[in-house]
Design a protein around this nucleic acid. Sequence first.
RNA 1: CAGGCUGGCCGGACGGUCGCGGUCCCGCGCUUCGGCGCGAGGUCGAGGAAAGUCCGCACUCCACAGAGCACGGCGCCGGGGAGACCCGGGGCGGGGAAACCUGCCGGAUCGGGCCACAGAAACAGACUGCCCGCAAGGGCGAGGGUGAAAAGGCGGUGUAAGAGACCACCGGCGUCCGCAGCAAUGCGGACGGCCAGGCAACCCCCGCCGGGAGCAAGGCCACGCAGGGACGAGACGCUGCUCGCGUCGUCAUCAGUCCCGGGUAGGCCGCCCAGAGAGAUGACCGCCCAGGCACGCGGGCCGGGAUGACACCUUCGGGCGUAAACCGGAAUCCAACUGCUGGACAGAAUGCGGCUUACAGGCCAGCCUGAGGU
RNA 2: GGCGACGUGGCCAAGCGGCAAGGCAAGGGUCUGCAAAACCCUCAUCAUGGGUUCAAAUCCCAUCGUCGCCU
Length: 114
Amino acid sequence: MKRHFRLTRSTDFKRVRSNGKSYAHPLVVLYVTPSDQPGTRVGVTATRTVGNAVRRNRAKRLLRAAMADLLPETVPGRDLLLVARTPLPLAGLSQTREALASLLRRAGLISPLP
RNA sequence: CAGGCUGGCCGGACGGUCGCGGUCCCGCGCUUCGGCGCGAGGUCGAGGAAAGUCCGCACUCCACAGAGCACGGCGCCGGGGAGACCCGGGGCGGGGAAACCUGCCGGAUCGGGCCACAGAAACAGACUGCCCGCAAGGGCGAGGGUGAAAAGGCGGUGUAAGAGACCACCGGCGUCCGCAGCAAUGCGGACGGCCAGGCAACCCCCGCCGGGAGCAAGGCCACGCAGGGACGAGACGCUGCUCGCGUCGUCAUCAGUCCCGGGUAGGCCGCCCAGAGAGAUGACCGCCCAGGCACGCGGGCCGGGAUGACACCUUCGGGCGUAAACCGGAAUCCAACUGCUGGACAGAAUGCGGCUUACAGGCCAGCCUGAGGU
RNA sequence: GGCGACGUGGCCAAGCGGCAAGGCAAGGGUCUGCAAAACCCUCAUCAUGGGUUCAAAUCCCAUCGUCGCCU
């Protein structure tokens, strides 16, 4: 997932968080808002409650890796925000991918059956 | 063998597969010619603390980076260091049985302040008390259940009663001298008077040091807006104050500075042989390396043990030598093979030095104390 | 990244060198037929560790945590 398709600005994060719809899972929270861009843009965050810098980096790395797998099947034209929750650094990549896929399915962004 | 102390070091290795970030190069596609995307390859890619931001320094701005006051910091001695609340050495004080550890460690006769409760009294001769005297008055500082702390302790001389008033010894303080040491200081001697407690991590005094802010410093480019007010021959800045210095200006509604309001919320440099963007190092498999647990072949240890072999050395006496084989023993120690398990704390954001804190497990070197077995 | 402030019962807090006030909450008791109200009682590692002092919540140092500000 290239940086060009990622949310980087603080205002972008605030916009998605305040205007978007949210979908929760014990490991991740997903925010979705329509975008004026043709592709899908994704932002990833982990707050201090997740843990120290090593745990936060791991949480965001897992989310980026899982999203990279699911991105080709995702309906474009949305801005997504992925928020890590505390137990996420303890999970594996497959668990993270499952959690994220269920959230995207509930949001109607990928087809119900993989 | 157990317990402890000190210093230094490491903090997983190798291979495979799939991934992440920077950069270089190649190919293809798109392009508003600035670049962008996809794919393949080469190369580079976190730590001993990268952390906390506790000290410093470089660097940048405050027009130069100036003086004094205020304020803040530091404080035994002599070295190292760019420098420091740094390092190592020495002295003194404190702790420990020892190895060793540890201390913001100047001044209490400049002055102010505080010392709860208890106690007669907390730095002071008031009270109680002792003595002389009929009394008035005078002398005295011994005793006074306290307390963290009460005008050195003990013995004697002395006296009306007493007292460091005087004497010997001990303890502390100061001055001088000698010796050792660069010095802090230590040891010894003489003299002095017991001049009067503690707290300066309370103010203060003495000495030394410090201008302020911090890479979100600061600079360049782009985008964008709406003015209003104060001052007024001075205004403003460095700064909390004074000086000093500097910028703009001085008879006009201009300039300047400040305040309020309004606008911008983008890019580049600063910024790096890792490097920046919300910020890159991981996952799986195999195998190994430490380590832990179980199992204990065997070894070490202690006692007994002679026909004291063979080899070696020899000054030819002997030495190696109870050394070995062999038998027995036990609190403990090491440990082959095999199986299971298994690697912490934690991620650079301008750079560097120091300190502090977190950390599974291990290695190396040196030192102290002690018990037990036979 | 940098700068600064604050940690006192469950909560809000005073105290700034000498036994840690007060209010709310909670628990127990008195009162009541039962409750409410009222009254009485109980409840503190003063964030942690070390130091200065006779004595530390208070002064000093270090650590931990929370909060705020600066583009």
